[in-house]
Design a protein around this nucleic acid. Structure first.
Length: 425
RNA sequence: GGAGGGGUGGCUGAGCGGACGAAAGCGACGGUUUUGAAAACCGUUGUCCCGCUUUGCGGGACCGGGGGUUCGAAUCCCUCCCCCUCCGCCA
């Protein structure tokens, strides 16, 4: 959520920011009108409340009698007037909040300006694209041939965009999860977390999925619990409604979770294979920092996700996202894409974002500056470290051999009981 | 799921219709004392919002959340949530 003060004090900057993010700048005037109306009503109501407080105390001290009864009668009407003003103020406030909650974050001034992914900028490419002296297969052929992926049975159990992983396939994914968590905990200083996979709506509002993107989420209607679309949601909400000490920042959290997405907005896209399912595994990285170091932490975060790709020997590239391609809550973001030789695609395995104080406002997560007065909102960052099925795709497709086996990256072998390659079962 | 108990400031815990943003203790911070420290003593010690003559002043709100009763609610009523104890069920 954007700071209402920005709308009051720097409306042009907000208009410009929204325009860059591909949002209609007219919302600024609506917000300003609503804000003015709300403040007017609050001022009137509070003036009457001050009077009521004063007179009610007097009533308490008065002897019973005519004067007292008259004052009580008068305060009764004041009370009614307050009630009326408050309900009008509340309505204006609700309208204002609804609007504010729909608006995306404003891009960082250094982010490349552009309307969509075409304007993204490749920052660096690492590793050599794998060469083959045969035609490399896509994973949706390799997987079934190796006996580690079953698409038909996935559809039988749960419908389209679901699949079954088996044998060395599921084991590889499990090994990757363990290895990634170990890497982030021991090499990068993260705290491992095992969060709930279903959360209340406040968490989704906090992280920015609600109210705007409810269509992409699964929900248990009976208890109003929602399946998380990413571990970013529970991790970012860990300190919701809390005031932290600056000395405790930055906080680094990593978690493995399954992620659930209805993918309504990507209907018809990436329907083959395991690139885009309704359920997938991910190891997530989340940071809470003070504002002055969040940009530096973003660069570091990208590096931490890159470490995963590098250690696995996967060719990858880093893109800085344009203002129009960034996600709702981000003010600056980088994607990491690994090369998948079989389907001939760069696969997004991580999106690292600095959300500034956008999520912290929604979550009301603040910190007390060391030696300073008052409180401030933290900055939140998140990035995948990294998405599992797409990593499996890249390992399978880049590691495939003419004989149909797949050579595994060395770092993962100890987690696979020393196995060097996946062979057809 | 059933029965009972409970949610008050950083913590412990009093208050059960009016002078309560809330006693007391602990903790924390500042000061006095001390060669230094401890102890003792004195003082300070929440958050959010609105307004203004904007490093200050005035006002409003917050005692789990929401609603109600009342001139006035931490205190009374309703409702939801969470925690504890016992019973039931169960990975």
């Amino acid at each position: 959520m954007l700071d209402i003060r920005l709308f009051r004090e720097a409306p042009d900057a907000v208009r410009e920011g929204l325009r860059k993010a591909g949002e209609a700048p007219e919302a600024v005037d609506q917000v300003r009108d609503l804000d003015e109306r709300w403040r007017g009503l609050v001022a009137q109501s509070e003036q009457l409340k001050a009077e009521r407080n004063r007179e009610s105390q007097r009533i308490g001290r008065m002897e019973p009698g005519q004067e007292r009864e008259g004052l009580i009668r008068r305060m009764r009407t004041v009370g009614e007037r307050i009630k009326e003003l408050d309900s009008r103020a509340e309505a204006a406030r609700a309208e204002l909040d609804d609007l504010l909650l729909q608006l995306p974050n404003i891009p960082h001034p250094d982010a490349p300006v552009g309307p969509d992914e075409e304007a993204n900028v490749v920052v660096r490419t690492e590793g050599e694209l794998t060469e083959f002296d045969f035609e490399p297969k896509p994973h949706w052929e390799l997987g079934p041939e190796l006996g580690i992926l079953d698409f038909d049975r996935g559809a039988k159990l749960s419908g389209s965009r679901f699949y079954v992983m088996m044998r060395q396939g599921s084991r590889l994914q499990r090994a990757l999860i363990n290895w990634m968590l170990d890497l982030h905990v021991s090499e990068h200083g993260y705290t491992e977390v095992y969060p709930p996979f279903v959360v209340n709506p406040e968490c989704l509002l906090g992280a920015g999925q609600l109210p705007k993107f409810s269509g992409n989420l699964y929900r248990d209607a009976e208890d109003d619990l929602w399946l998380i679309p990413t571990a970013e949601v529970p991790l970012t909400n860990l300190h919701r409604e809390e005031i932290l000490e600056e000395a405790d920042l930055p906080l680094y959290y990593t978690a493995y979770t399954a992620c659930f997405r209805r993918e309504k907005m990507s209907a018809g896209k990436d329907v083959r294979g395991i690139k885009r399912g309704h359920q997938f595994d991910k190891v997530e990285l989340v940071k809470l920092t003070s504002p002055d170091r969040s940009e530096a932490e973003l660069q570091k975060l990208v590096g931490e996700a890159e470490d995963v790709c590098r250690a696995l020997g996967l060719p990858y590239r880093v893109k800085e996202l344009s203002t129009g391609d960034m996600s709702f809550a981000a003010q600056r973001a980088y994607d990491i894409e690994v090369w998948a030789a079989g389907c001939g695609e760069w696969l997004e395995v991580s999106s690292c974002s600095n959300c500034g104080d956008f999520q912290a406002r929604r979550c009301n997560t603040r910190y007390r500056p060391a030696g300073g007065e008052g409180t401030q909102f933290v900055h939140t960052l998140n990035g995948s470290g990294i998405a599992l099925p797409r990593t499996v795709i890249a390992i399978l497709e880049n590691g495939q051999q003419p004989d149909g086996t797949v050579v595994l990256p060395e770092v993962i072998r100890p987690y696979m009981g020393g196995m060097e390659r996946i062979e057809p079962q």
